[in-house]
Write a protein that binds this DNA or RNA. Structure first.
Lengths: 189, 189
DNA sequence: TCGTTGCGTTCAGTATATTTGACGACCGGC
DNA sequence: GCCGGTCGTCAAATATACTGAACGCAACGA
């Protein structure tokens, strides 16, 4: 939790001096100096004023991600990571569901999956996970989705978007596999 | 910036009392009471101790989105919001690109798009945006993607995943439209 | 060699966050 | 009614963040 180092990096990347930033944020350069040396821990109110002056929001500020040494941006189908429905918190009825994940989610803020549900597949009520959000679009086939107390049958082109904390369930009620491309943030498994 | 209300909501969703949380976080319940009433603005150090005890990380804490009164989870194709390539920071070569967005991204942490690039479409080098990440999977057609100094041609099933701060560009170099389902976090336009 | 300008840091004093200890309100059991 | 327990809040004391005025340093030009 190197708040000071992070603040200094952000400030310098904007080409501001401590006094510049102090002026815009309505603080003093002394305070910024102490914060950047981790000699004081700013109140949220003060940190927000600093970030407003940069500008950057608090959520961004705290979600620093390391960059790969040789960054990898592209993935062929056979490079996807196969996830087990179990790890994803799905029930026994989802044993044959294919979950293929783009890249290494543990190193990213965004998790994208290529999901294929065979006919009859049923995730069962999934365990609650993080505070993140989940969304997806149906590419082919038909799937019944339950979120909290709502049930809907989604056709190709339809989508869903909800808070991951809500109980949710996917069932392929058709007779052909259903392919869905989905995204979560932050990664939940 | 209702830090207090947010903290109270999170604490109560975990079924903790102020004293419970105080015990686990090494603070006192009085401090929590004042913070929840927005009568004091916690230092980042204190807030982190509180969130560690919940547990939740700072980034998640600050990326709060309002929940609809009657929450909407499902979207038909005609309910998608049509975005203009201009607003997305794309160049003139992308005028005919179709960008259809799931839900109202300004109220969510996750933005999912159904994108269709006609033959010859070219976004040009896109403007840098937030600190978030961008990812997607090609559904049909062929597209050339440039990220920083890397160029790749992606076929159906291929995907991409990179930090939104990197310069990036999409070009449909085939002779049929290319459909991509993409996700960003946090929403950038 | 100066004086000036701009940088980050330090220090004593002030404002504010946090603790300690107490209060009233509520609830279930007797 | 009257407990014992738990809840959130409040008031005074203490710890800590922040201010305002210094300091030392390096770069630049007269």
């Amino acid at each position: 939790m190197d708040i000071g180092g992070r603040l200094r990096a952000v400030r310098e990347s904007r080409g501001m001096s401590q006094r510049d930033l102090a002026g815009r944020a309505g603080l003093t350069s002394s305070a910024i100096s102490l914060i950047e040396q981790n000699k004081s821990s700013p109140s949220v109110a003060s940190l927000k004023r600093l970030l407003d002056a940069i500008p950057m929001n608090l959520s961004e500020f705290f979600s620093v991600v390391e960059q790969d040494v040789v960054p990898k941006y592209f993935y062929a189908p056979d490079e996807y990571i196969e996830l087990s429905p179990q790890d994803a918190g799905m029930g026994d009825g989802a044993a044959r569901v294919s979950l293929r994940q783009l890249g290494d989610a543990s190193r990213h803020a965004l998790q994208v999956l290529h999901e294929s549900y065979p006919p009859g597949a049923d995730t069962g009520p999934e365990l609650l996970s993080h505070d993140g959000e989940e969304a997806g679009i149906v590419v082919s086939g038909v799937i019944e989705v339950t979120v909290a107390d709502q049930v809907r049958v989604l056709n190709p082109g339809d989508g869903y978007l909800f808070n991951s904390q809500l109980p949710h369930r996917f069932r392929n009620i058709g007779d052909v596999p259903c392919v869905v491309i989905s995204a979560c943030t932050p990664p939940t498994f």
